[in-house]
Design a protein around this nucleic acid. Structure first.
Lengths: 258, 258
DNA sequence: ATTAATCTTGCATTAACACGCAAAACAAAA
DNA sequence: TTTTGTTTTGCGTGTTAATGCAAGATTAAT
C-alpha cells in the first residue's frame, strides 16, 4: 500500500497528461479501492487541484496551465542568452536610480546581476522571485507591488498592483514579454501580467524591453503595446544583424553585445 | 546498534532517492523498532528535512518553492502554545469569508491550519511566509499587500501597504502583537508593523488578537491601540484563570481551550 | 421509465499513532 | 570498578486515522 501523499502526487501528474480520468481507472492503476480514490479526489478538490465530476475528475484550469509549463521549459533553454542580455541591460543603470522589473525569467537574471553590481538602488517589482534575490542586499530599497497572488508564477497582479505602481516615478523599467514583432509589437500570454507591464510603461521615463534573440518576430495572444511606445530593446549576441537593421529602419533601437 | 546521527543520515539519503518511505519500511531496513523510526522522523521533521505523514514520511521539497528557500526558519518560541491558540482561533471563521493576517509567527500557525481546514477563503496579508503557505491551496484568493520590503521579518509595510488594505472590507482580522496588558493595551516593538495592524483594525468587522499566554501583561515600546478597540483575545490553555477574570471585569473577552 | 453505473453515508476493521513507563545503554563522577 | 544520573529504546496502553464494504440515493444513458 502506498502513502496518501504519493497517491495524490501520482493522480495529479497523471491528470496533467490526460486532462480527465475515471475513478475506476485510477482504482485499477493504483491498486486501491474505488472508495479510496474518491477520498483522494476529495482532498485534491479541496486544494483546488482537480474538479470532481460524475465518473471521475478533471484538472482545474489553474493547474492545467499548459502555457506556463511551456514557458518554464523555455527558461532553461535560453538561460545563457538571458544572462548575456541582462549584463548588457544593467549598463544603462546609474547608482541611486529607481528601477522597475516586471515578472519573468529574464528580469530574474537582471536582478541577480543588480545585487552584485550596485550599492544603492530603489527597485519595484511584482515578482516574488525577484524580491527574494534582491532582499539579500540590505542597501537596496525594495518595493513589492501588492495584489492578487499567482502561485504558478509567483507574481502579483490586479488593480491594487497597478495602483501602487502609479505612486512611483520610475527611472528605468526593464520589461520582459513573451513575444515581440514589428507587426504586433509587444505581446504576451500571461493574461494578468499585461496590465502590470502597461502600467509600468506609463510610469517610467526609460522603457527598456529585455528579450533574448529567440523572442524576436514571435507573437503571443495578448497585445501589450506597439514597439514605438518603448525606448530600447536589449538582447543577446545571437540576433541576426539584418533583424537589427530592419528594426532600425522603423526607428526601433536595439542594443546588443557586438 | 547504530547511532542516532547515522540513522538520520541514512533515512535522509534514502529519502533523497525514494522521495517517500513508510515507517515500517525503515524499521525493517535499519533493523530498529517502529517507535525509534517515529522518533527519528520527528527530529528530522523539526529540522525541516522531512514531512511526516500518516504511515511514514516524505521529503520536503524546499528547492521547488522559491519562497521557502528564502526563509531561514528561525526558532519559534512557544510553538505548541501558538498552535493551540491557532486551532481555537480558526473556529471563528466561516467558509468564504475575507480574513486578514498581519505578520508574525502566531499568524503563520493560523495560516497552516487554514490551508487544511477550509475550502474557499479570501485572505489578505503583509507577510510573505504566510503567502507561501497559503499559495498551496489553489482555491484560496490570496492577496498580498504591497509596500516596502522588510528583509528581517519578510513582511511589507508603509503607505502603499496600508492603502491597499483600505480597499478591502475584512470579516475577521487575526492580529499578533508583541505584548498586551490592561494598562498599555496592545504594544509592539516592530516599528513598521504597528501601522499595518492599526489599518487592519480600522478595516475589519471582527478584530481578534491571537496571543499565546506568555504575551499577557507584558508590554513593548510602541502603543498599537487600547484593548477596548478589539473584540476578542484568543490564547492557549496555560493562561491563569485569574488573569481571565481580571480581563473579564474590564469587559475584555478572552477565548481559550478549557 | 427503466437500467446500470456512480456517488454518498455510515460503519467495522485494521494499521498507525501518541503517551507513559521501565529496562537497557551510555556517560560522568566517585 | 562502582555508583549515579542521563539518554535512548522498546513495549503496553488507549486513541486516532485510513481503508474497504454495504445500503440507499443520485446521476446518466437508453
Amino acid at each position: 500500500m502506498m502513502l496518501q501523499e504519493q497517491r495524490h502526487q501520482k493522480i495529479e501528474s497523471f491528470l496533467k497528461q490526460q486532462k480527465a480520468v475515471k475513478a475506476s481507472e485510477l482504482a485499477a492503476l493504483l491498486d486501491i479501492s474505488i472508495d479510496t480514490v474518491r477520498r483522494d479526489l476529495e482532498v485534491l478538490e479541496k486544494n483546488g487541484i482537480v474538479k470532481r465530476v460524475h465518473g471521475g475528475a478533471i484538472l482545474t484550469q489553474k493547474s492545467d496551465n499548459v502555457l506556463n509549463r511551456l514557458f518554464n521549459e523555455r527558461e532553461v533553454k535560453n538561460l545563457e542568452k538571458k544572462q548575456e542580455a541582462a549584463s548588457i541591460a544593467i549598463e544603462l543603470i546609474e547608482e541611486g536610480q529607481a528601477i522597475a522589473l516586471n515578472g519573468g525569467t529574464t528580469t530574474i537574471e537582471i536582478a541577480k546581476v543588480l545585487v552584485d553590481k550596485f550599492k544603492r538602488l530603489t527597485i519595484i517589482t511584482n515578482d516574488l522571485r525577484i524580491l527574494s534575490i534582491l532582499g539579500k542586499n540590505k542597501n537596496f530599497n525594495v518595493i513589492l507591488t501588492g495584489g492578487f497572488f499567482n502561485p504558478e508564477e509567483y507574481t502579483l497582479y490586479g488593480k491594487q498592483c497597478e495602483e501602487i505602481l502609479s505612486n512611483f516615478n520610475i527611472d528605468i523599467a526593464f520589461l520582459t514579454v513573451n513575444g515581440l514583432s514589428l507587426e504586433h509589437g509587444l505581446t504576451d500570454f500571461r493574461m494578468h501580467e499585461v496590465g502590470v507591464i502597461q502600467t509600468m510603461i506609463s510610469r517610467t521615463r526609460h522603457k527598456v524591453v529585455v528579450a533574448d534573440s529567440s523572442k524576436f518576430e514571435t507573437s503571443s495572444y495578448i497585445n501589450v503595446c506597439p514597439l514605438k511606445d518603448i525606448d530600447l530593446i536589449v538582447t543577446d549576441s545571437s540576433l541576426p544583424s539584418n533583424t537589427i537593421e530592419e528594426y532600425s529602419k522603423k526607428n526601433i533601437r536595439i542594443l546588443s553585445p557586438h
